[in-house]
Amino acid sequence: MTLHMPPILTYALRRLVQAIPVVILIMIGTFLLLKLAPGDTVDALVGDMGGADAAFIARLRAEYGLDQPIWVQLWRYMVKLASFDFGWSFVYEQPVATVLMDRVGTTLMLMAASLSIAFTAGIVLGAIAARRAYSATDNLISILGLVFYATPSFFLSLMLMLVFSVKLGWLPVGGIKTIAAFYTGWDHVWDVVRHLIMPTTALSLIYLAFYLRLMRASVMEVADLDYVRTARAKGAREGRLMTHHIMRNALLPVVTLLGLQFSTVLGGSIVVETIFTLPGLGQLAYQSVVQRDMNTLMGIIFLCAIIVVVVNFLTDLLYARLDSRIELA
């Protein structure tokens, strides 16, 4: 009896099988790369402490398993990882899984909000710019997009902070909640939202330019194609033409970029989270590198690899939905 699975399940299973060696290679490569960096977590710890004696250093190194050869350390790590045991964070004195779970929510919230804003605003503004190509509106949108794109995220973050926190006093400087205010219910939700406004804006303004530029070019290209001219000749209204004929096809490359950019937004969140002191994966990654917290860093990389694989899979599904010529196989 042959097992007949729906094409989407076959496709998902195939992608999953393909993803496993990719993730394993990423983890091994990252582990070895991190080991190439001078110093380990004990050095960072001793640096923070302002010094320690040799016996203390040797004891810590033995306790953390850092006195073993690299291959032994790698083997032990990968064996544990196979059962989703991410190990112990010697910096946070907690299981890495707990540290990651504490942080992943903030980052996902930040990324989802930033990407949604950047994507939505990008395609709308891109479409407007394309439909009014070479007009003053187009120039203004394009220039603004480029300015945001060219502005380093730390500078944009600090400027937002200076204007909205220091000068106007409207928004909090950083963190995810007002400490010692003990808000509950909707007050707490509103408090978190207020804390996320500036980091989300900083992150989304940078990525908005990508979508804007790509959408503009894509719409202009599609608008010139024969089938659009035909639709227009058959009397389709401009609004319907835009939403039903042009946008749908123009979105394809933009959706591809969305999937690809998910990983770069994770990178961008390192800077934004560090400046706004948001307790997310980005800030954690930065601190883990500085403190050589190998287990935590490997945990973050693993999580990011999984997120990127999943997002790319979802992007492909969306792609197939947008373009019926593409089949999942």
């Binding site: 220091v166 950083g174 963190g175 930065y286």
Partner: peptide, 16 residues
Amino acid sequence: WRFIKDKSAAAAALEA
């Protein structure tokens, strides 16, 4: 005790 790694952000927090 608030941990703010970025010195400019810390200055902004003082000013605010």
